[in-house]
Design a protein around this nucleic acid. Structure first.
Length: 110
DNA sequence: TTGCTGACCGACG
DNA sequence: CCGTCGGCCAGCA
């Protein structure tokens, strides 16, 4: 299959496929796209999602430690945590409880 | 056009 | 355990 889409575009697709109440990591998406070391780019792409008209659940994407590193960029410091909490997740100290159980890996699910 | 930066991750000392 | 560095891709001055 030839995906001539840009790395960013692919990030949007994968992020949009994240099920409700699930979370994944930048590295997982990067790995799924074939660029393991491009985890940073994933975060950069998600930053562009704010500018995008599409409703991308970027709040479901966090770092591999289950830490909400990107909460600063959601307009509000608590915005990301509240969004996740609203989905049934539990945020404690900027980290997700039961992260392993709520973890959604595109490499496995897709 | 060149160079720096950014929501990360893994390796090394 | 903690600090530092390289790699990856795209946007911007």
């Amino acid at each position: 299959m030839k995906l001539e889409k840009s790395f960013f575009q692919q990030v949007y697709e994968v992020t949009a496929l994240i099920p409700y109440g699930r979370v994944t990591s930048y590295g997982a998406i990067a790995t799924y796209l074939g660029s393991k070391g491009s985890a940073r780019i994933v975060g950069w792409a998600l930053n562009s999602t704010k500018n995008s008209i599409k409703n991308i659940p970027a709040h479901r994407v966090i770092n591999k430690s289950g830490l909400l590193t990107g909460k600063h960029h959601f307009g509000g410091i608590n915005t990301m945590a509240e969004l996740l909490t609203n989905e049934g997740l539990i945020i404690k100290d900027n980290s997700i409880l039961n992260f392993e159980k709520k973890y959604w890996d595109p490499n496995i699910e897709l």
